[in-house]
């Protein structure tokens, strides 16, 4: 199997994997970064969201062979000790129910707010529309994004 050098959370990792292996499974199974979740595998749910060069992307749609040279951030690398304003807002609002989708929600929200620190309500709803929460914690997610935006701006 070919070898790839990946830059994840400011560290370089070398992995052996088939070239079509999605980044999601490289993170989870090869590198033990299991905070990034598997929900659908086809780019529909957002559970696998990571940052690539600051933009939110679905790691289930990125092949490991494309990931070389990318600056990848996962939920584990978003902050030291969970202190990113989005994480803090998630805690203050107590967003999670089962919690499974929340890493993906947080990654989407944090990339969005970095680009748009003063969003309107409809901008928030659009930005978060791609992330499914099967427990339907949507009201709390929306509120937490607002709280984080207030802190960040």
């Amino acid at each position: 199997m070919p070898t790839f050098n990946l830059k994840i959370n400011n560290k370089t990792h070398t992995v052996n994997a088939d070239m079509d292996t999605p980044l999601l499974w490289v993170l989870r199974d090869h590198l033990n970064l299991v905070g990034t979740k598997f929900g659908c595998g086809i780019g529909q749910c957002g559970a696998c969201s990571v940052h690539v060069d600051g933009n939110v992307m679905r790691s289930c749609l990125i092949q490991v062979s494309q990931a070389e040279g990318m600056q990848i951030t996962t939920i584990e690398g978003l902050s030291e000790n969970g202190t990113h304003p989005v994480q803090e807002a998630w805690k203050a609002i107590d967003v999670p129910q089962c919690g499974y989708c929340q890493a993906g929600q947080i990654m989407t929200a944090s990339a969005f707010l970095a680009q748009n620190p003063n969003p309107s309500e409809s901008e928030i709803r659009n930005a978060m529309h791609g992330n499914i929460c099967r427990c339907a914690s949507y009201n709390s997610i929306e509120e937490a994004v607002k709280v984080a935006a207030d802190k960040m701006s």
């Binding site: 033990n32 996962t74 584990e76 000790n81 994480q87 805690k91 107590d94 919690g99 929340q102």
Partner: peptide, 21 residues
């Protein structure tokens, strides 16, 4: 009272069945 697993959830710690290895 916030969910007792909140810190682990928001930092992506292994908690779920799928994370178990």
């Amino acid at each position: 009272t916030a969910n007792v697993d909140i810190d682990e959830i928001i930092t992506g710690k292994p908690l779920f069945g799928l994370d178990y290895k």
